[in-house]
Design a protein around this nucleic acid. Structure first.
Length: 897
DNA sequence: TGAAACTGTCATCGA
DNA sequence: GATCGATGACAGTTT
């Protein structure tokens, strides 16, 4: 482990991280441990596994420590996955946000190393295709929200169409309107994902599993497309040439916020100098890199970091830059920009002060049109004085909207810049708040300054790629192998604190491995209290499982032997693992593979065996155990005595040892256990909550192969704390704690397993009770066990339903928000069209007035006269003070005619 | 150490 | 009336 430690700590991880920051791919090699179904769910159908290999490390671990004796053809699998991922990634381009920011801040003139030559393909494709992937960052753990993904994609398409159809305006105000909604939606989705992950986690250790699952999904989902960041920047600069000699990183530098890490996501990025002294930088910022690799910097927190970024930049120096840039461009606004302002103002005016009363009032009074020369529209667009606006509104309602720009000209101008087709002005706003907000709050838009610019950037935080630790749930024990293989940071972080060679996670893992093996062996212990007659009868009736129906003595031997054989076979023949597990899984309810059930069964079925072991481990429960032992001894028959003695002996060899010895006899099995226990979160992610289908086959072969946590079937009703498994101490205590009902049943010599009691149909259950002639206490206990077991399952189902309802409601909320956004867009479009019509009418109005003459032949002043459109279709010219000019009416009519 | 989360259990209600 | 499922509430445990 020392050289492993050295291996870990000296440069490999650091280089991996730095290479990842440079766009190189870093593969931590988790894929082979994920079942195919999980690949699709976690990584998504189009995800690309873009992690360079830690194969050396993994193989080193495997070869040197036999951590993965059943390892599959990882290289082939990786190759296939990578190729497939590349193919999938051809249609999208994603710039890791962290990388982009790092580049923006620390960009050096020297080029960064290019990750892969073929990565240009997706880039070009993305540039040509305007294919954006907002899902990667906006919605995490999206596998369960496939419909939402579809909706999102559909909306993205609509949005793209909208961009194409309205390249010059009307989209920025929409963005502004939708920003808040998108943000809320993202938050909701993230929350939903967390909830769902926890829900799917089921018996997960608190919320950590769900959160980690979410992170896992996020990471894998965002591990989609990697490309050379340098390449990206190059194309970016080609598409968006900087003006005024300003460089991209200059913008970032000017923007002070980018240089300091975000408080919420500290440190946001380590200062990165690819051409400087990398080792020095690594040393200097290693802690920052580690912080990046922390799971906290992943999706959920990225959501918050987005918010933070938004907020901080809204209040930070970006505000100044933001307002500064628009001021620079203020005088250069073209008509499109003003049109966008008009639209924005048309939309926002009612919210502000009802100045949209201009159009609305015009609608109410269509016959009244002020004399509004179109030139004035443009002449007054730069007017920012609200008082003037209000004044002008009375005289010239069409002045109102442009004057409203005065409310927040910088913001509006930034919005205009978003709609600008002019790339020269775009780059000035590249890092200003609006773009940041647009990119962050609306990942769907990502960075698509205009429809003509086909380069879209997905500024997702791809530091997940760098953070194999995010794969690692916060489990010390069972995830040790995972930590070793996938979470180097966590490993050596822990190792640094442990100078004894064996790290604390390793110790926990070893202890857990031993304990889990112990539990597994204990699970195989036969049920007590069966007389041969009863057992045979139960077997005939099919009530007893295979192990239960075994003859006592032989059953003990068989079980213990089978367990041993199973354990040994795992070490010897990994190919027979399924068989071994199936042998162990004799009555396991795979459809309800909740850890609680599995563990509860472990405790229940092994309660007798646990006595000796636990007695030594938990003195506080000695009395209780002794009590039951005494009860057993009082009621025991000869066979039972032999059986228990055998069990005692076996458990003395297997589990009757102090915790310090626990790990030793099972080191050989450690690899197997690790192989399947290395991902304790998997069973929580894929937690099948079909508790009410205890006898259904396993939903996932992979899950079904997890021996230690799903080796037993009966969903029991003990004080099961599946999350206890996270540590060896807790596992031991769990083993002790979870056998309450079982011990009671054993104490009363209830000849049925708890799973039998719980899962039998009522008729069969009644027949069973009637056939066995149980005492009142036994009957009461059995009924209590059944009731509690049923209720436990019902409670689990109830909670799952509740969670599903929450998810569904959240989905509905998201859908409604999208619908609302769509309606708002339609409204904005309608208002825009209305404004256009009004503008045309104004022009026509002016045209008409330009041809009107008074009695003396002088042109009428539009400020003094107005056209009065009567309901009968006649048009009159009325003086604003004196009323209609009767003489001009005829003239007007004549002219009209 | 307290909050949050998870789970089991009990009580209750309705089918 | 017994049974079962659903669900709120509570407690215990862990993170």
């Amino acid at each position: 482990m020392l050289y492993l430690k050295k291996y870990f700590t000296e440069g490999l991880i650091q280089m991996a991280i730095l290479l990842s920051l440079c766009g190189m791919r870093v593969d931590v090699g988790l894929e082979p441990y994920l079942p195919p179904s999980w690949h699709n769910m976690i990584l998504g159908p189009t995800s690309a596994l873009t992690q360079t290999q830690f194969h050396n490390l993994r193989n080193h671990l495997e070869d040197g420590h036999s951590l993965h004796p059943k390892n599959v053809d990882l290289d082939g699998f990786f190759t296939a996955r990578r190729l497939l991922g590349w193919v999938h990634s051809l249609d999208r381009l994603q710039v890791p946000r962290a990388e982009l920011e790092a580049w923006l801040v620390q960009r050096e003139p020297d080029p960064l190393p290019v990750g892969f030559p073929d990565q240009t393909s997706p880039l070009v494709r993305a540039v040509d295709g305007v294919e954006r992937d907002r899902i990667a960052s906006s919605v995490e753990s999206r596998a369960v929200f496939s419909t939402m993904q579809e909706d999102e994609e559909e909306e993205d398409k609509e949005e793209e169409m909208y961009h194409v159809l309205h390249p010059n305006g009307a989209l920025d105000e929409r963005r502004e309107v939708e920003e808040e909604e998108e943000e809320e939606e993202e938050e909701d989705l993230a929350q939903m994902c967390r909830h769902y992950s926890r829900a799917e986690g089921g018996g997960g250790p608190g919320g950590s599993y769900g959160r980690d699952n979410n992170r896992e999904l996020t990471q894998n989902e965002e591990d989609q497309t990697h490309f050379s960041f340098q390449e990206c920047l190059r194309l970016f600069e080609e598409n968006f040439p900087f003006t005024e000699g300003e460089q991209l990183h200059d913008v970032g530098s000017r923007d002070g916020d980018l240089e300091r890490p975000s408080p919420d996501r500290e440190p946001m990025l380590p200062p990165f100098s690819p051409t400087g002294n990398p080792s020095l930088d690594m040393e200097l910022h290693w802690q920052d890199l580690l912080a990046i690799m922390e799971p906290e910097s992943t999706d959920v927190d990225m959501m918050t970091s987005f918010d933070h970024t938004r907020n901080s930049r809204a209040t930070g120096t970006l505000q100044g830059a933001r307002s500064e840039v628009p001021q620079q461009n203020c005088n250069n606004h073209d008509k499109d920009a003003t049109d966008a302002h008009l639209e924005v103002l048309l939309m926002e005016a009612p919210l502000h002060r009802g100045l949209l009363g201009a159009p609305s009032q015009s609608e109410l009074e269509p016959a009244q049109f002020t004399l509004t020369p179109s030139a004035e529209l443009d002449d007054h667009r730069s007017a920012f004085d609200m008082q003037d606006t209000l004044k002008n509104c009375n005289m010239n309602r069409l002045h109102g909207p442009p004057d409203l720009l005065a409310e927040d000209p910088s913001e509006d101008f930034c919005l205009d810049l978003n709609a600008e087709d002019n790339l020269s002005t775009f780059n000035l706003n590249l890092l200003t708040q609006d773009h940041v907000e647009n990119m962050e709050s609306s990942p769907s838009t990502q960075y698509n300054p205009c429809p003509e610019n086909l380069l879209s950037f997905d500024l997702n935080f791809h530091s997940h790629d760098l953070t194999p630790s995010s794969f690692t749930p916060p489990l010390e024990g069972n995830s040790m192998t995972q930590d070793l293989l996938t979470s180097p940071s966590s490993v050596f972080l822990v190792e640094e604190d442990d100078e004894d060679g064996l790290t604390s996670p390793l110790i926990d893992l070893l202890e857990d491995a031993a304990i889990l093996n112990e539990i597994r062996l204990l699970d195989l212990a036969p049920e007590e209290g069966f007389s041969p007659e009863m057992a045979s009868r139960l077997e005939e009736e099919g009530y007893l499982d295979r192990d239960v129906a075994q003859p006592e003595t032989g059953g003990n031997d068989n079980h213990s032997g089978s367990s041993r054989v199973t354990t040994e076979n795992r070490g010897q023949d990994g190919g027979n693992e399924a068989d071994s597990d199936s042998a162990v899984d004799f009555s396991y309810s795979p459809a309800s593979p909740s850890a609680s059930e599995a563990s509860s069964y472990s405790s229940s079925s092994s309660s007798s065996s646990c006595v000796s072991t636990e007695r030594s481990l938990f003195s506080e429960d000695e009395d209780e155990d002794a009590e039951y032992v005494l009860v057993d001894s009082d009621m025991e028959v000869e066979v039972t005595i032999k059986q228990e003695r055998l069990e005692e002996e076996e458990m003395g060899a297997v589990g009757g040892r102090d915790p310090g010895d626990v790990k030793k006899p099972f080191l050989l099995d450690y690899g197997d256990d690790k192989l399947f226990n290395g991902f304790p979160w998997l069973e929580h992610i894929g937690h099948d909550h079909t508790y009410n289908q205890p006898w259904s086959p396993p939903s996932s072969p992979f899950l079904g192969k997890m021996p230690t946590k799903q080796t037993k079937s009966s969903p029991q009703h003990d004080n099961v704390k599946p999350y206890h498994r996270s540590s060896s101490r807790h596992s031991l205590s769990e083993t002790k704690m979870q056998s309450r009902d079982e011990r009671r049943a054993r104490g009363l010599k209830v000849p049925f397993s708890n799973e039998l009691i719980v899962n039998l149909p009522v008729e069969e259950f009644n027949d069973l009770l009637a056939s066995c002639q149980l005492s009142e206490d036994q009957l009461s206990l059995v009924r209590d066990i059944r009731r509690r077991g049923k209720n436990k399952i019902a409670a689990q189902n109830c909670r799952k339903r509740k969670m599903n309802v929450l998810v569904s409601l959240s989905d509905d909320v998201s859908g409604l928000r999208r619908y609302r956004s769509r309606l708002l867009r339609e409204k904005q479009e309608a208002l825009r069209k209305l404004q256009e019509m009004k503008s045309q009418v104004g022009m026509l109005y002016q045209e008409v007035f330009s041809r009107l003459r008074d009695e003396e032949g002088r042109p009428l002043d539009a400020m003094e006269y107005l056209l009065d459109f009567e309901p009968n279709g006649s048009v009159t010219v009325a003086s604003r003070q004196q009323g209609p000019l009767t003489k001009n009416n005829k003239k007007q009519r004549d002219k009209k005619k």
